[in-house]
Design a protein around this nucleic acid. Structure first.
Lengths: 157, 157
DNA sequence: GCGCGTTAGTTGACGGAACAACCAACCTCC
DNA sequence: GGAGGTTGGTTGTTCCGTCAACTAACGCGC
């Protein structure tokens, strides 16, 4: 194993990034659970559906957009269905496939949860940075995603 | 709820940051599990102990350095102890406290895991960025941590 | 020296996530 | 037109994290 160590600056950046990556999901989850009874991941799933045409997506497509494995998504969608936020129906064109579609109740849930979520994002991230830094962050994250997610599943426009 | 929405640039940065935060832990966990049978968090715990004087830390101190709740740490340390990587012994000065100490086997485990881990960090993060971006990343992460971790538990030097 | 509140840590129950095994429908190629 | 392989999803197990409840020890005030 070719062990090139990290220099002072790199180590500093890395340690801080790890801390952020460790803390941020918890902060998001906490607020959403408290105010809306949703996991951040569940919210994300609902949000992706809400943006899709007919509020419908195939499970596979939804899994890619949310970076979930299919088993994980399957479980989550089942729970969301039990809560009446999502409906599952077989895909007419492909007998193997399942379409997940956002119900009216699910739509309402997203709409209700969004403001609080956005406020949290502002408070924890956006407002902590200068406008210039927001731009830098986008570029940095983009560069990282080219390594972490080469196929670009999570950055479809 | 005061709903100031995000503009184009902010949204872009946010979406990408979320993707990174979602993907990075998985990438780290995957490599460490595969090559060393350790969670990233377990590795981090062992690493913190390896840097401490006498390879020993009080549970509370260790929890702060790793941003873990005490229950979480307690479970993890128990598992590590069962694997012989860590030892727990009552603190002489304070009857309530427990000291976690890294065994020789634990030390060997960290030493063995470190090169592969560093290589992963390089590959996924550091090498994807220009030197300037590494500096920017440190500043950005620092700014976020002031919101996410006001008491600075995770950024003791 | 004895209550009372606080601090340190453990334990148990429960929910979510990864992984592997599995089933069913599609495809294609002979 | 059927066999072999691939793709799309679900189910079950196991493990980890969180939360709440609990125990034990400290320390202050009297």
């Amino acid at each position: 194993m070719d062990t090139e160590w990290l220099d002072e600056t790199q180590l500093d950046a890395w340690v801080k990034l790890v801390a952020v990556v460790e803390l941020l999901p918890g902060a998001l989850d906490h607020q959403l659970r408290r105010d809306s009874g949703l996991t951040h991941f569940e919210y994300f799933v609902l949000a992706m559906l809400s943006e899709a045409s007919d509020r419908t997506l195939r499970m596979t497509a939804l899994a890619q957009r949310t970076n979930a494995t299919l088993p994980r998504l399957s479980h989550v969608v089942r729970r969301l269905e039990e809560r009446g936020l999502v409906e599952r129906r077989p895909c007419p064109e492909d007998g193997r496939a399942t379409n997940a579609l956002l119900t009216d109740a699910g739509w309402a849930e997203v709409v209700a949860a969004a403001p609080g979520h956005v406020a949290t994002v502002r408070r924890h991230v956006i407002d902590a940075l200068t406008p210039a830094q927001v731009g830098q962050l986008a570029e940095i994250a983009e560069a990282l995603l080219e390594r972490l997610d080469p196929d670009g599943h999570m950055r479809r426009r």
